[in-house]
Design a protein around this nucleic acid. Structure first.
Lengths: 350, 350
DNA sequence: CTTGACCCTGACGGTACGTGAGGGCCTAAA
DNA sequence: TTTAGGCCCTCACGTACCGTCAGGGTCAAG
């Protein structure tokens, strides 16, 4: 007779005996005969069915789906195929995305001279936190300075907590000094790269869980963070106070996200300058547009105030530090503004 | 105190309570405190650890690997990353391969006017069997004729079995007639596309499991298949017998794979002609080289025999049918051979 | 005191089998 | 006739990462 035992069928089809047992157990393929001693005996019909099973499996269908298709004579096959295709596309997309991330991390980890003082773990954590916002180079710089100044950070943070517990007002010289030290440490943290500092700040505010992470790592609770934020905010206003009358100052007291918006524009402007973009290019001109409208917003549309703000930025180094600006960037912006206000003119320095 | 219950930690990190329970159960993240009533309380240190766990998970590491990395302070991370990358590449490759196959099947299934008489199942089976050997168009043609002539096949096969059981010799007119009918049905099966028929034959002999599959589907066992093969083989020799003396005929009695080799060359020659290749092109000239060396092999190097074979092919329609040739193809080959024997000459018909 | 939201432990389920453990069946050689 | 080796049987645990009940305490507010 042409009937096969499990082992024979397994050899014939390349499956394992266990797999055939499994198919039997779930009712996917039941041998239509048994020998006297209880051996499974598979007939031609069983073999045909098994081949169909294998054909369907090669479409990435689950055994459940295979059973369903066989039960319904293949009725739902086209939809299943379409679904499989969607799923596959999804998988491919995710896998390639993950792949790029992994290669980036691998690059960053292995490119450094010394492997981040051996602390792969902290490195990976830092990278996964910022890799959506920073380039490989920037991550590399972040890593390079991640282990420095740890003591200074700790001291500063503990002093901050102490001040908070003693209710020292944020306007006090002491707390203002702490805030200044905080800014300096941040600048050191990014290796002096102001653009990178801006990116970190924006990432911090854009990713909710990043804040929680930082809190956990730094040991700062929300109250202390808020205290620091208020101190920085006050320092900023105090810097402006020397150039603006109280009414104008009052208007500058707006939500943090608007202020961050200016920070973002300043950062992109810096990138454009670093990239060698022309001041009359579309990119820079778009940024100038945003810059102007933000200045309008901050000055309440008062041209005189706006002028004073502009002059203050040029003259006051403390303000420049606060807003991630410097002389060369301001000069770049100035040229761009000239083009912006007089688009048709031949460009070039006067 | 700054400690969190499971629910709070879950909300903070985006995990589920159950997942945290699981991490606890496997010892990946144990809360460092418990409340009096037995609630899990997670401290800052626990949260830091959890964030690291999440960072590592985003690298596609298993919880086991994550635990290993955390236990060894991240020592084996770089190798793990490399391994992950390899694995990812593999997954991507397989997924894309599967994707192309699925789209092909989907195309073939949905392109046909009528969906293969509703028998998706048989269609998929057929496609998965031949998709490595045939193009979408060819599969489409195969499908178009897959359901026709089923009765004739069945009758033919049962007659074959009967003849085998009665020990009718393969040389008999009866069995030879059966073999002829078999060839005609095959030709109908491929819609008259001789090239496709050759591909199917080659696929059949190249894929071991395909043979088992066909046996199972047709109900023919190995003995019957062998019987048919012998009949076809005899028919072939009988066709040659009218043109060659016994000694030359004897040399043609060589292994099937050599004979199939000629079939393959004839098929590719047909493709080249259909593609409009020039007879002096590299592709066709290479094929002519194979053609000639095969003819040499079959004729034992005897130029006279070789000539007679060539003439026989041109003259005898039965031989042409056996070898998948026809007048136009033979004429194409003839022109190609002329170029081959006289490479420098200006080509063109005399 | 109740109610609803939260917490606990314990346990099953899902995927497609791998991997034994413990024990019969079959065939051929000794 | 025994025995050895290769086949077969059933039963059952394990895999990865939790989802999802079930049955029952805890906590804060009304």
């Amino acid at each position: 007779m042409s009937s096969f035992t499990v082992g024979q069928l397994a050899r014939l089809t390349g499956l394992t005996v266990r797999a055939l047992h499994h198919y039997h157990a779930i009712g996917l393929l039941e041998p239509s005969q048994r020998s006297e001693s209880g051996y499974r005996l598979y007939t031609q019909a069983d073999i045909v069915r098994l081949y169909r099973i294998q054909a369907l499996q090669r479409l990435n269908l689950s055994l459940n789906d295979v059973a369903a298709v066989l039960a319904k004579e293949g009725a739902p096959l086209p939809e299943m195929l379409a679904q499989q295709l969607d799923e596959l596309d999804d998988r491919i997309e995710k896998a390639t995305a993950l792949r790029t991330r992994l290669t980036q991390i691998h690059d960053v980890l292995t490119r450094g001279d010394e492997p981040v003082a051996g602390d792969w773990l902290a490195a990976v954590e830092l990278i996964t936190q910022y890799d959506q916002y920073c380039s490989s180079d920037e991550l590399q710089r972040l890593l390079a300075h991640s282990n420095a100044d740890k003591d200074q950070w700790r001291v500063l943070l503990s002093e901050l907590r102490t001040a908070l517990e003693r209710d020292v007002p944020v306007q006090s010289d002491h707390v203002q000094a702490l805030a200044d030290r905080w800014m300096q440490l941040m600048l050191a943290r990014v290796g002096g790269d102001v653009g990178l500092a801006i990116k970190m700040k924006l990432a911090y505010h854009a990713q909710p869980d990043l804040q929680a992470r930082m809190q956990a790592q730094s040991g700062l609770d929300e109250a202390a963070l808020d205290y620091l934020t208020r101190a920085l905010r006050h320092g900023n206003l105090a810097a402006w106070a020397r150039h603006l009358e109280p009414a104008a100052l009052q208007r500058l007291n707006m939500p943090d996200d608007r202020l961050r918006e200016w920070l973002r524009v300043a950062g992109e402007m810096r990138n454009a300058m670093a990239a060698g973009d022309g001041v009359d290019g579309i990119a820079v001109q778009t940024l100038v547009g945003e810059w102007e409208s933000l200045l309008d917003e901050f000055s309440g549309g008062d041209a005189a105030v706006k002028d004073r703000m502009q002059q203050a930025l040029h003259a006051d180094v403390r303000l420049q530090r606060r807003w991630a600006l410097d002389a060369s960037l301001l000069e770049f912006v100035q040229r761009a503004r000239n083009v912006w206000r007089n688009p048709g003119a031949v460009h070039g320095r006067a």
